[in-house]
Simulated scan of single mutants.
Amino acid sequence: MSKAVIKLTDLNKSFSHRAGNNHVLKQINLQVDVGEMVAILGQSGSGKSTLLSILGLLDVADSGCYYLVIMMLSRFQHISSASCGINTLVGFFKISI
Rank of each mutant, 00 (worst) to 15 (best):
M1P: 01
A4H: 03
V5N: 01
I6V: 12
I6E: 01
I6R: 03
K7S: 04
L8M: 09
T9F: 01
T9Y: 02
L11P: 00
L11M: 05
L11A: 04
N12F: 12
K13D: 05
K13Q: 08
K13S: 03
S16E: 07
S16A: 14
R18Q: 13
R18A: 12
A19N: 14
N21I: 05
N22K: 15
N22Y: 11
H23S: 03
H23N: 08
V24F: 02
V24D: 05
L25H: 05
K26F: 07
K26Y: 04
I28A: 12
I28C: 05
I28P: 02
N29S: 02
N29L: 03
L30I: 13
Q31G: 02
V32R: 00
V32W: 00
D33R: 08
D33M: 08
D33W: 02
V34Q: 00
V34M: 00
V34N: 00
V34S: 00
G35I: 05
G35L: 04
E36Q: 15
E36S: 03
M37Q: 12
M37D: 04
V38L: 06
V38K: 07
V38H: 07
A39Q: 09
A39H: 09
A39C: 10
I40Q: 06
G42V: 07
Q43H: 15
S44M: 08
G45R: 14
G45K: 08
G45D: 09
S46I: 05
S46P: 04
G47W: 07
G47Y: 04
G47V: 06
S49R: 09
S49C: 02
L52W: 04
S53E: 04
S53L: 12
S53D: 12
I54N: 00
L55I: 10
L55K: 02
G56Q: 07
G56A: 14
L57E: 00
L58Y: 06
D59Q: 10
D59Y: 10
D59V: 12
D59P: 00
V60R: 11
D62E: 09
S63H: 06
G64I: 09
Y66F: 15
Y66N: 02
Y66M: 11
Y66W: 08
Y66L: 13
Y66I: 10
Y67R: 13
L68M: 10
L68E: 06
V69Y: 06
V69I: 13
L73T: 05
L73K: 12
S74D: 13
R75P: 15
Q77P: 00
Q77R: 12
Q77F: 01
Q77T: 07
H78F: 11
I79L: 11
I79Q: 09
S80M: 05
S81W: 00
S81N: 08
A82N: 09
A82L: 14
A82S: 15
N87S: 13
N87A: 13
T88P: 02
T88D: 15
L89Q: 15
L89N: 11
L89A: 08
L89C: 11
G91L: 10
G91N: 14
K94P: 12
K94T: 14
I95G: 11
I95C: 14
S96D: 12
I97V: 14
I97A: 15
